[in-house]
Structures are given as structure tokens and as C-alpha cells.
Amino acid sequence: MLTMTEAATANPSDPEPKPPLIDPVCGSGSPAIATLERLTVRYPRWKRIYGKIEDCRVLSKNAAEPRCLLIVGRSGVGKTSLIQKYLAEHPPRETATGRVVPVLFAQIPAPATIKAMASHLLEALGDPMPQRGTLDGMTQRSVRLIAACQVELIILDEFQHFIDREKNFKVLQTVSDWLKNLINSTRVPIVLVGMPESVKVLTENDQLARRFMAKERLSPFQWRGDGKDEFIRFLEEVSEKLPLAEKPMIYSVDVAQRMFWATEGRTALVMKIVRSATREALVNNWKTITIRELAKAYTEALVGDDDELTNPFLGPIPPIDAYGRPVRLSQDEPKEQTPKKRFKAAGSASKSDFSSMMKGQAA
């Protein structure tokens, strides 16, 4: 097994380069690329919340009232991939008696209005004219189609849109009441997904809150206590699933710390970097990915070409403080920054700096 350092020098100097695994221009149809894009790592927290969603669907069938669930999390923590995986495993199907939609998914529009909500549900149910009719008529059609399509679970994303940001973050009570009535009318459980501020909707609507007693938070990985080991295990599972000839050592402690600094433990950002690096390896028929590809992928997938940003995969390992937070390399930055803004420093490491780093790793 090559280390990240050994592989970094091995790829370009392959004495007899093989033809690329995929066409660099038309490579999206490659089986390896398809595997890469579908890659899902079911780490413990992911599996627990997935199981909670399944409980809502299955246990509600014989329950006195639907088991509903609220899932919250910051951007990039994996909410979308979790829901997409659940939908993929419970797809709609055509039967002799009509279309069956076991899991109905819709995004809550912004701003959220009752009519827009009803229209989105009707469209997801296959209504040919989802915007037609009065509000009452659209709601009644939604209820009838939910029953006709044998819907067992409704998932609504972007729940934070129930908060009106243009009016002092006021909760949209009429839409909240409409959602409560939809649950009562259909007896179908609903999973709401949104940003952490979504909880405000429930705190200001007691009747809706009673139906969403179960709440789950999908959080970024941490770099302290057991969180560090959990993050490293996650990276090892990612490494094992990549469609590469050799398992890349992205889970070594030094590379894992760089990855955590780059992503703040957010799975969506980790996968952006890893997918970008792996794509390049597949196009060039390399056996594995190295820290060099990760450095390039970080620039291309997360921050773009900005000479003022420091690449955490180049130079010394970036520090993380005692609280598990990435230490900013500039004291002049504002307190809260996106990953792109946070990496402001003297500039990217030079080639000589990179060579020194690689020698240090090899030692």
C-alpha cells in the first residue's frame, strides 16, 4: 500500500502510461464516475437518523397518530444526501391500478405560501395542472392524490422558509396551520428538514410542535474527544468505497487534520474535495489520489483561484485549537467566515515548501 507521499511522486512518472479509463471530455458516462457520484458512506450518525425516518414511515401505519420528525443541520452537513438516498431506496412505481408514491418529496418554496405549498405537492404527485384552482380546491386535490398514490411518508425540505426573513423573522402562522391540518386530514407522517433556525417555527406554534416532538440534529464532525476518531473512520470508509485501484491514505492523521481544517467537518465539503480529486485520477488512469490532488481539488471545488487564500493541503499542517476549531491563519478576519474567506493568509505555499513538506511526511 502506497502512502500519500509515495503515491504523490508515483502517478506522473508511470513508465508505461495506460489509456485513460474515461474520455476526459465525455467521461460522465463512465461506470467508475457513476460509482463515484453515487457514493454514500453510512456513518453512525447518518444511519441513526436514516433509521428515525424509516420509523416514521413504518411505525405510523399502525399508530394512533402519525409519527412526525424534524431534522435540522447547518449547510453542508449531509441533509440533502441523506434525503436523496432515502428517496432513491423508496422510488415511485407504476402498478396495474395506478401510480404508487411511497415517499412524497417537495421543497418548501420561498416565501412559503399555502397556495405555493399545495402546488408543489400536486406537482410532485403528478397532477397535470398543479397551479389550477382555488386554495381549498388545491388542498382537497392534494389530500385525494396522497391517498390515491398510497403515500406513506411526506418529506418537506427547506423548512426554514416558514420564517419570513423580510419581516423580522416572523413565523408564517397560516402556513404552519395549513401543514398541521394536512397531517390531520391525510394521517400521513411528515419529515421536515431545514436549517437550525427552523426550530423557531415549532416554538411559536404549540399544536404543530406537539406533532413534531421528535427532533434530530445532523452536525458536522468534531476534532476533539471521540469526534476526531469518528472523522478519521469516516474518511477511511470513504477511501474504501472510492473506485480506485489502490486505497488512498486520506485517513492518516495528518491528512485528516488538513481535511478537517478545509471543511470544518462538513461531509458535503469533504465529498466535494474527494470527488474532484478522484475524478482527476480516473481521467489520468492513476491508481490512487495523493495530497497533491487534494490540494488541487480544494482550490477548484471549494475556493476557486484566489492567491490570497492558503491551501491547507500545502505547507505545514494547519493548527486546530483545544476546542476542536480550525485556527485562522490571519488575526484580521471577522469572527464568522465561510471556508473560502477563512483561509486568508500570506499566500499559497511554493513548490519548494511543498517538496519540504512531502520529505517531512516521508521521514
Rank of each mutant, 00 (worst) to 15 (best):
A362R: 12
L329T: 02
K287Y: 11
Y43I: 07
L218D: 09
P312M: 06
R217C: 08
E237L: 13
V143D: 06
P91N: 01
W223L: 05
L192Y: 01
G133W: 09
P109W: 02
Q131Y: 12
E6H: 08
D177N: 13
Y86M: 03
Q337A: 14
V41A: 10
S276C: 15
S219Y: 07
K340W: 11
R187S: 14
D127H: 13
A118C: 13
L21V: 11
L179A: 04
V72N: 03
T203E: 14
W223G: 01
M138Y: 07
S219K: 12
A268H: 08
I190T: 04
P319T: 14
F234T: 03
L121P: 00
Y50N: 12
L2D: 13
G347N: 13
V25F: 15
M4S: 15
M259Y: 04
E89V: 01
D23Q: 06
A301W: 10
L179P: 00
F162P: 02
P109S: 05
V191C: 07
G73V: 05
W223C: 04
P248Q: 04
H90D: 01
S75T: 14
D206G: 06
D306L: 11
S350W: 05
T5F: 08
M259W: 00
A147Q: 14
P109T: 00
S330V: 04
R45M: 12
R342C: 04
Q222R: 15
